[in-house]
């Protein structure tokens, strides 16, 4: 399946991916409303890490054998036929077993709702919002097999 990969050599930590991720996961899908009016404020589903000139964005790997799904005590986390790992919020009890299990640190606590929050690869969109809005092509949406060029440049 396609996943989002970071290219740290061209990421400049502008965090536009975080901004557009948040808007994509807001009710209004409007930049200003999402940040200034929606309460609780919607959450971004990826994180930018930065130290000096080194930075990259990162989100769920939608693992072939996802530790979070296997660890989930309520069955709220599922891996669909399309490979996307999703949280069913009505089943999640906020026990954070998934946070303990995910070696990628890709699940966050949604404290307002008391449920796990993670990347859903933007259902209905051809390209996830983070990738579409990256000004530097520092995020790519690709199959694992298409990554040879990435590993040579990073």
């Amino acid at each position: 399946m396609k996943r989002v990969y970071a290219r740290e050599e061209v990421c400049m930590a502008c965090t536009l991916c975080e901004v557009h991720c948040l808007v994509q996961h807001s009710r209004s899908r409007d930049l200003v409303k999402a940040f200034k009016r929606e309460r609780p404020r919607p959450l971004k589903r990826l994180r930018v890490e930065e130290r000096g000139p080194l930075s990259f964005a990162f989100q769920c790997r939608h693992c072939p054998e996802p530790d979070c799904v296997y660890a989930c005590v309520t069955g709220a986390l599922t891996k669909g036929e399309d490979g996307v790992v999703l949280v069913q919020e009505d089943k999640c009890i906020g026990c954070w077993t998934c946070i303990m299990a995910c070696p990628y640190g890709s699940i966050e606590r949604d404290l307002a709702q008391g449920v796990a929050s993670k990347c859903d690869l933007c259902p209905g969109e051809e390209i996830p919002a983070c990738v579409k809005n990256c000004p530097n092509d520092a995020l790519v949406f690709a199959e694992e097999g298409e990554l040879a060029w990435l590993s040579t440049t990073t």
Partner: peptide, 20 residues
């Protein structure tokens, strides 16, 4: 801080590529 920048470079890269 539990983040990838807290890991040695080789492991940071492996995690970003999603290698098990």
């Amino acid at each position: 801080d539990f983040r990838f920048l807290s890991l040695p470079e080789e492991w940071r890269r492996r995690r970003i590529r999603g290698e098990a």
